[in-house]
Simulated assay, not measured.
Amino acid sequence: MMVVVNEKQVEVDEQTTVAALLDSLGFPDRGIAVAVDSTVLPRSHWTTRLSDGARLEVVTAVQGG
Protein backbone atom coordinates (compact mmCIF):
# COMPACT_ATOMS: atom_id res chain seq x y z
CA MET A 1 0.00 0.00 0.00
CA MET A 2 1.06 3.60 -0.44
CA VAL A 3 1.49 6.34 2.15
CA VAL A 4 2.88 9.85 1.79
CA VAL A 5 5.74 11.01 4.01
CA ASN A 6 6.68 14.68 3.77
CA GLU A 7 5.09 14.86 0.30
CA LYS A 8 6.90 11.75 -1.01
CA GLN A 9 5.07 8.52 -1.80
CA VAL A 10 6.37 5.45 0.04
CA GLU A 11 5.25 1.88 -0.45
CA VAL A 12 4.77 -0.04 2.80
CA ASP A 13 3.47 -3.40 3.97
CA GLU A 14 -0.02 -3.59 5.50
CA GLN A 15 1.52 -4.42 8.90
CA THR A 16 3.85 -1.39 8.96
CA THR A 17 3.63 0.81 12.04
CA VAL A 18 4.53 4.47 12.28
CA ALA A 19 7.65 3.57 14.30
CA ALA A 20 8.78 0.94 11.77
CA LEU A 21 8.31 3.36 8.89
CA LEU A 22 10.30 6.09 10.62
CA ASP A 23 13.09 3.61 11.36
CA SER A 24 13.17 2.31 7.78
CA LEU A 25 13.42 5.87 6.45
CA GLY A 26 16.33 6.69 8.76
CA PHE A 27 14.66 9.24 11.02
CA PRO A 28 16.34 9.69 14.42
CA ASP A 29 14.89 8.12 17.58
CA ARG A 30 14.59 11.48 19.34
CA GLY A 31 13.86 15.06 18.40
CA ILE A 32 11.06 14.46 15.91
CA ALA A 33 7.32 15.01 15.85
CA VAL A 34 4.88 13.11 13.67
CA ALA A 35 1.46 14.07 12.36
CA VAL A 36 -0.73 11.51 10.60
CA ASP A 37 -3.52 12.94 8.45
CA SER A 38 -2.98 16.38 10.05
CA THR A 39 -3.23 15.09 13.65
CA VAL A 40 -0.15 15.07 15.89
CA LEU A 41 0.55 11.51 16.99
CA PRO A 42 2.05 11.10 20.48
CA ARG A 43 5.09 8.82 20.65
CA SER A 44 3.01 6.37 22.73
CA HIS A 45 0.86 5.78 19.62
CA TRP A 46 3.68 5.17 17.16
CA THR A 47 2.82 1.46 17.32
CA THR A 48 -0.29 2.31 15.27
CA ARG A 49 -0.48 0.54 11.92
CA LEU A 50 -0.63 2.74 8.87
CA SER A 51 -3.57 2.73 6.50
CA ASP A 52 -3.46 3.02 2.72
CA GLY A 53 -3.22 6.65 1.66
CA ALA A 54 -2.15 7.96 5.07
CA ARG A 55 -0.30 11.27 4.95
CA LEU A 56 2.54 11.75 7.43
CA GLU A 57 4.44 14.90 8.22
CA VAL A 58 7.69 14.35 10.10
CA VAL A 59 9.36 17.39 11.62
CA THR A 60 12.87 17.28 13.05
CA ALA A 61 13.81 19.65 15.86
CA VAL A 62 16.81 21.82 15.03
CA GLN A 63 18.92 23.56 17.65
CA GLY A 64 20.53 26.87 16.94
CA GLY A 65 19.94 30.57 16.88
Rank of each mutant, 00 (worst) to 15 (best):
M1K: 10
M1H: 10
M1P: 12
M1V: 12
M1W: 08
M2E: 07
N6G: 02
N6V: 09
N6L: 06
E7K: 11
K8S: 12
K8D: 11
Q9H: 08
Q9E: 12
V10C: 01
V10S: 03
V10N: 00
E11A: 14
V12Y: 02
V12C: 01
D13G: 01
D13F: 09
E14D: 10
E14M: 04
E14C: 04
Q15V: 08
Q15W: 00
Q15E: 13
Q15M: 11
T16L: 11
T16C: 12
T16I: 11
T17H: 02
T17S: 05
T17E: 09
T17K: 03
A20M: 01
A20C: 02
A20H: 03
L21A: 00
L21H: 04
L22G: 03
L22C: 00
L22R: 00
D23F: 08
D23S: 11
D23P: 02
D23Y: 05
S24E: 05
S24K: 12
S24P: 01
L25C: 05
L25G: 01
L25Q: 12
L25A: 08
G26W: 09
G26P: 09
F27T: 09
F27S: 05
P28S: 06
P28E: 01
P28F: 08
P28T: 06
D29S: 14
D29Q: 15
D29I: 13
R30A: 15
R30L: 15
G31H: 06
G31S: 05
G31C: 09
I32V: 15
I32P: 06
I32H: 06
I32S: 05
A33D: 07
A33V: 15
A35L: 05
V36S: 00
V36I: 03
D37R: 04
D37A: 03
S38G: 07
S38M: 12
S38E: 10
T39F: 02
V40D: 07
V40L: 12
V40P: 02
V40R: 05
V40I: 14
L41N: 05
L41K: 04
L41A: 04
L41T: 02
P42M: 09
P42T: 13
P42E: 07
P42K: 12
P42H: 10
P42D: 07
R43D: 00
R43L: 06
R43A: 10
S44H: 10
H45A: 13
H45N: 13
H45F: 14
H45P: 04
H45I: 13
H45T: 13
W46A: 04
T47S: 12
T48G: 01
T48L: 05
T48E: 04
R49N: 11
R49C: 14
R49K: 12
L50D: 01
L50Y: 06
D52L: 08
G53P: 05
G53F: 10
G53I: 07
A54F: 08
A54L: 08
A54V: 07
R55T: 12
R55H: 12
R55K: 14
R55A: 15
L56S: 07
L56P: 02
L56F: 00
L56H: 08
L56V: 14
L56Q: 08
E57N: 13
E57A: 15
V58E: 02
V58P: 02
V58S: 03
V58Y: 05
V59E: 01
T60P: 04
T60E: 10
V62D: 03
V62H: 02
Q63V: 10
Q63F: 08
Q63S: 14
G64Y: 07
G64A: 07
